[in-house]
């Protein structure tokens, strides 16, 4: 089942009467379990538009998106043939701007809104709120605060907590780590990875951080100017000669490995995928 894009096009109608092409001929399959995907690409390439099709916030202009067997296209949506509520629970989407997601008087009300909406009773929802607020690195005192009076990074954390509390099958996060302090970012990426590992859930993360792509992703999607231009593994992506055209960059780890080899002639036995592997290999080579 999962999510299937079939030749999807999408345009925005601008206030200046120009049409802005955001998706062109997208065909794509995402499994309902076991995927860890990062979605990357230049500013304005269509990443946010793409994920907003994955929980039917947007409807394709042409083509269709199948979400857990429900077909989303112009016709079905116009004739009100699709029930959106189950889709919104199955596919949880954390917005790029937390401000678009936070609207209640208190953080707690915001977090329990989703679960309650999907039939969870209030007491259980509050219990969940107490758990998820800690998962995102804030303490329980934040539950009684107004979401509007928080710092940027704190808002981001609360908006992530709200979606985690819904316990969706597929979790999609639109630039979840921009604005987080580095240790907070690492901790949250580990949380997402844990959810993926322990519950075998599919996770999709939009990011500009190439280190996240290299160290976490099993599969990478690259958008460029409304087209999906790469769908594959991270190792091959970073040896692709197009990465400069796509406004991407080389991850710090790969950069360092290349530099050590070029400038100091240090050759590592294998290509390390994380810091720990790099340390261990360097130790062997240099001792």
């Amino acid at each position: 089942m999962g999510i299937k894009f079939n030749k999807v096009d999408f345009k925005y109608q601008g206030n200046d009467n120009k049409a802005y092409l955001a998706l062109s001929n997208i065909t794509l399959n995402i499994k309902d379990t076991g995927e860890f995907i990062t979605l990357i690409g230049e500013t304005g390439s269509g990443k946010t538009t793409l994920v907003q099709h994955m929980n039917a916030l947007l409807t394709p202009l042409s083509g269709s998106v199948d979400i857990f067997g429900v077909k989303i296209n112009r016709e079905n949506v116009k004739k009100k043939k699709v029930k959106l509520n189950p889709i919104r629970q199955q596919v949880g989407l954390v917005f790029q701007f937390p401000e678009y997601q936070l609207f209640e008087e208190t953080v707690q009300k915001d977090i329990i809104f989703g679960p309650k909406n999907f039939g969870v009773d209030e007491a259980t929802a509050i219990e969940r709120a107490k758990e998820v607020i800690k998962v995102v690195g804030l303490d329980e005192s934040y539950l009684q605060r107004s979401p509007f009076n928080l710092s940027g990074g704190e808002k981001k954390r609360v908006s992530i907590a709200g979606i985690l509390a819904m316990e969706p099958d597929i979790l999609i996060l639109d630039e979840p780590t921009s604005g987080l302090d580095p240790l907070g970012r690492n901790a949250l990426l580990d949380v997402f990875y844990d959810i993926h590992k322990k519950l075998n859930k599919t996770i999709i993360i939009i990011t500009h951080d190439m280190n996240t792509v290299y160290e976490y992703a099993k599969r990478v999607l690259v958008m460029r100017d409304s087209y999906l231009v790469y769908d594959g593994d991270p190792i091959h992506l970073f040896t692709n000669k197009n990465i400069d055209n796509w406004n991407l960059d080389v991850p710090d780890l790969l950069n360092l490995i290349h530099k050590l080899e070029e400038d100091l002639g240090i050759q590592l036995p294998t290509q390390p995928r994380n810091e720990q592997e790099l340390f261990e290999q360097l130790k062997v080579v240099l001792s």
Partner: peptide
């Protein structure tokens, strides 16, 4: 944090 949502090249 004026560049937090820009792609690496941007």
């Amino acid at each position: 944090e004026a560049t937090s949502m820009l792609d690496p090249k941007g």
